[in-house]
Design a protein around this nucleic acid. Structure first.
Lengths: 354, 354
DNA sequence: ACTCATGCTCAAAGCGCTTTGAGTGCCCGA
DNA sequence: TCGGGCACTCAAAGCGCTTTGAGCATGAGT
């Protein structure tokens, strides 16, 4: 069933039917009702390709997922983010076009999307501190929203980000208040903007107590369980082992927990852990008392917000860039406690419970 | 740059240019070379919408991701699968169209994709034992490949699946050979085809030793860490606690491991665990000796195979359904060992070391 | 009665491509 | 010299939609 058939059926011109369906004011209410009813009855929906060809708009949003040649890693938060964004698209009658490309082809992919008008806008995933995509997209004139931020010039584009700096500052402070002094940071991949900000927050909290950051207690890599395990294991084997960890992801923290167990220690007693929790659907930090003490912000929500923001941006092209900074929530779980006391038995200062 | 401009530039008609680019035999080799060079130089690529409108083909593959109203869960294997499939699409110049829809709208979504020709084919994710999508897609005449299988009639459609039955039979047998007799099964969500087959394999292995399956040692649910933890904790607290677990996912097994640790036991000594390992990029069962003993099959590979199969199917519409059954690989890790000796309690025959 | 908004409807052009059916020029053999 | 293949090339139609610019009643104003 196409427009021509439908209008023949109704005894109207294609113009009128099209206008009726698209809520143009020129068509009478009676006609509109009749047309819409007929469309529904014959379950007619306009062909998006033809529509796109005629309007120049695609009603689709692009998500470009680079496959790195070095890190053959699909970002674990990706699924939840996409689910959030996808919900919004579905509600707004937009398609989600995904391109999985080797990272070397990424620029070409964006150029193509823009040149061919395959999408009305794109979401930029996983920005690095100096991300070239932002300048490129600006140049191409393709509307975009960044999930995260990239270094400088934050006011010149639209983004949705977690307040990573404050969040990690707070997490670190919490551990400091519990009496911990040797606090390790197990961070995300070097070069990622979020990892930089998290480190800055961590260092700021230490600086506020005049504690110099110790390079031996800071690690950065792809946030896998394995990375958490190895890193924590090695750090715990040191002479001046850390008594607490701040960890950038739940998955990594699971590895940290394993290392703590392997070392014969108990998480929440001898060693404390605070994590960043993305509230992934398949990795709930749940229970009555969450397993991990966490600074928490839902990535599913971030997906929704990004999508909504992008659609708004597309709808009003002249509008200035929008931004949204999400604060995290600090939830106390089982993984933190006062720093273990000096000699054989632990003796935290009374009242020092964070 | 569009076709008209390009042909004007070359002093040729649109027809010739189009044919040159699409490798029609009627155009001379000299002309073809010249045209292709010009296209490259002016980085011209045909507008996929216009192309689709003219040919009736979309050069896109659909992935419909249902968001369940009950289980608000994004399948954790999804990201890796998509990455695998996406690579193949990119190499074959196809787009990946994703629809995230409430499961109640799923049928409508498929009908729409088919009616509008938005995609040339779809991948069916997470088939349940009696999945209605297969009949629907057959009726709609939309090419499709199922990732997994759905109950009966396996020869009537195309699929890529792991040999779940044999895989779990083997995993269970391995534990039996180690002397374990009380073996628990922590499975995926009830109703999913793969969960049924895994249970069947598990039961077959037990039956071969004349062991009756114990309902109290079998659990089914969404495969989260939390589910693994709770289930294992409760089972280990029982009088006749299991000495081994067969677990349907690595994430769930991490929860099992936690429960084992909390119970003051050691995985690989007092309690053995065998998992199904999907080889997810962000959840490597790695190390020199893998953490978990596992039956292993890469879901990334499955994504590639599904995509390739679907593209082939689309290319030759008359072809009979294709299928591909992937065998798993049994890798020995640190999580399994002989059943603990008699002494205070249980008594396996000596020499029963698998 | 005539003009002029007003409200509704329409035919046709155009979006960028493929594909049909029709040339056009060239060379070969008769 | 001429007809007929052959190897290329082309103009134009059509894919299903939106949108422009125009047309046709109707009713109000003079």
């Amino acid at each position: 069933m196409n427009l021509k058939e439908l209008s023949a059926l109704l005894g109207l011109s294609q113009t009128t039917v099209s206008r009726a369906l698209n809520d143009y004011p020129e068509v009478s209410e009676t006609t509109r009702k009749r047309v819409k009813a007929a469309a529904l009855a014959n379950n007619y929906t306009p062909n998006p390709r033809a529509k796109g060809l005629a309007t120049g708009r695609s009603m689709a949003i692009g998500h470009v997922i680079p496959i790195s040649t070095q890190h053959e890693m699909v970002n674990p938060i990706f699924a939840d983010f996409i689910a959030g964004a996808g919900e919004v698209y579905a509600g707004a009658d937009h398609d989600l076009l995904m391109s999985v490309v080797p990272d070397v082809d990424e620029e070409r992919t964006y150029r193509n999307l823009a040149a061919r008008g395959s999408v009305d806008g794109v979401i930029v995933h996983g920005p690095r501190a100096d991300d070239s995509r932002i300048a490129l997209l600006k140049k191409l004139g393709l509307p975009f929203v960044v999930h995260g931020r990239a270094g400088a010039d934050e006011d010149s584009y639209s983004w949705v980000d977690v307040n990573n700096r404050r969040s990690f500052q707070r997490a670190t402070e919490f551990l400091l208040q519990l009496g911990h002094r040797r606090i390790a940071l197990i961070n995300g991949l070097e070069g990622m903007d979020f990892a930089n900000r998290r480190r800055a927050g961590y260092e700021a909290a230490l600086a506020a107590r005049a504690i110099a950051p110790d390079a031996a207690l800071m690690a950065s890599d792809e946030m896998t369980e394995e990375f958490g395990y190895r890193t924590a294991r090695d750090m715990l084997a040191r002479d001046a082992a850390p008594t607490a960890f701040v960890v950038s992801s739940m998955l990594t923290a699971i590895g940290v927990r394993r290392a703590i167990g392997d070392a014969g220690l108990c998480m929440g007693r001898e060693v404390s852990v605070v994590i960043h929790d993305d509230v992934l659907s398949y990795l709930r930090n749940g229970g009555d008392i969450p397993l991990f003490t966490a600074v928490r912000s839902s990535v599913h929500l971030a997906g929704r917000l990004c999508a909504r923001m992008l659609l708004d941006l597309i709808a009003s092209p002249g509008a200035p860039p929008a931004r949204r900074l999400l604060e995290t929530e600090l939830v106390i779980g089982q993984s933190t406690g006062p720093v273990p006391g000096p000699a054989p038995g632990n003796g935290p200062a009374p009242g020092d419970r964070g």
